[in-house]
Amino acid sequence: MSDAPEVKTPSFAMVRTLGLVSVICGIIIVGVYQVTLPAADANRKLALERQVFKVLPTAKSVVTYYATEKGIVAAAGLDQPPAGAVIFYAVYDAAKKLAGIAAEASSAGYADQVRVLYAYDTEKQAITGIGVISMRETPGIGDKILTDQDFLKNFESLDVHLSADLQSLANAVKTVKHGTKSGAWQIDAISGATVTSKAVGRGINESTQILLPRLLPHLEKLRSPS
């Protein structure tokens, strides 16, 4: 215990000090944010393009859109996404022709959320490739979704065509036990990594069930962007 008597500090001095510290810290934070923002935005754009180009190798440019229940709207110029909107990327080849759509799917895996980017072919109405955005699955087990060639074959042409009323998938995407796949809409799980395989299937199903009914009626707008 200290023997020195506690110094009485006037309330105003305490408030003034806290105010001064807050002002100094506020200026530092806002200054650094403004300085680093262009580089951080450029990094985010590069990372997105890298992911998209991996699942759609013919891609040359990417345009970000939002899909809402009322239609689709380009993200450029919007400060905030519209309420309830789903983000997706229209991908164009060197001839500025629509090469496909890329969108994110996410679901809980063994350790954390498994986030994948999938490529959707508008002609085949099928998923033609996936890439992992982030995951923290067990090394050597769950992370086989990145390397297992048999698993990746599921996504060479995974059927996601819509039902006649264009309101939902004709067949929900489902992950089935290894070796029991019987339909083009099923995903053959990796033996020993079923939880992660199911997370991928569940994520793609949930994403496509929402996105595709909103997207398909407006494909012409994407094929000939103004």
Partner: peptide, 29 residues
């Protein structure tokens, strides 16, 4: 003042953590 030192230190530390957070986003995603 001694009475407000912990609050002041935490604000100062949080400021530089935010600076590092922004800097790393700008360096490598």
């Amino acid at each position: 003042p001694k009475q407000v030192r912990i609050a002041s230190y935490i604000v100062i530390i949080a400021t530089f953590v935010t600076v590092v957070d922004y800097a790393i986003q700008a360096i490598s995603l």
